[in-house]
């Protein structure tokens, strides 16, 4: 069986064909133009991962929200579950960039960190 996917490791978007054997074992990867493409294609067929970005409420800040992201990609099927936890989270102002908001989300080993800052309201 083969699977055609578009590599999203970078904006090039190479069309990649993955040949799969029994139990989704990857037999070959064609069409990628770099090593990252091969890695992405294998992961996409075995354990797809996604960067997750959202916002978190700020208490006492000049802005109501601060942007956050997963420090590393999380399993694709857990994205909506992660959103429930992110939507319930709150940080106190002042919030610096890179602050951990949720530690080890859903036991994935991945932290949710702020990607912006928010000064406290005076």
């Amino acid at each position: 069986m083969t699977r055609d996917i578009i590599c999203t490791a970078c904006p090039m978007g190479c069309p990649v064909t993955v040949e799969l054997g029994e139990n989704n074992a990857v037999l070959s990867v064609r069409g990628n133009q770099c090593k990252r493409g091969e890695k992405y294609a294998v992961a996409e067929c075995t354990n797809p991962m996604r960067s997750l970005t959202s916002t978190v409420k700020v208490k006492g800040g000049v802005n109501p929200l601060v942007p956050v992201r997963s420090a590393k990609p999380v399993p694709k099927h857990l994205m909506l579950e992660c959103m429930k936890i992110i939507n319930a989270a709150e940080v106190a102002a002042p919030a610096a960039i890179g602050t951990v908001v949720v530690e080890n989300i859903l036991g994935t080993g991945v932290d949710i960190i702020t990607t912006g800052s928010c000064p406290a309201k005076e």
Partner: peptide, 16 residues
Amino acid sequence: IHTGFGLHYFKEELSG
């Protein structure tokens, strides 16, 4: 707030 910025310039994936 999504990621995908900086892959060429910083060689890493950043949010806006």
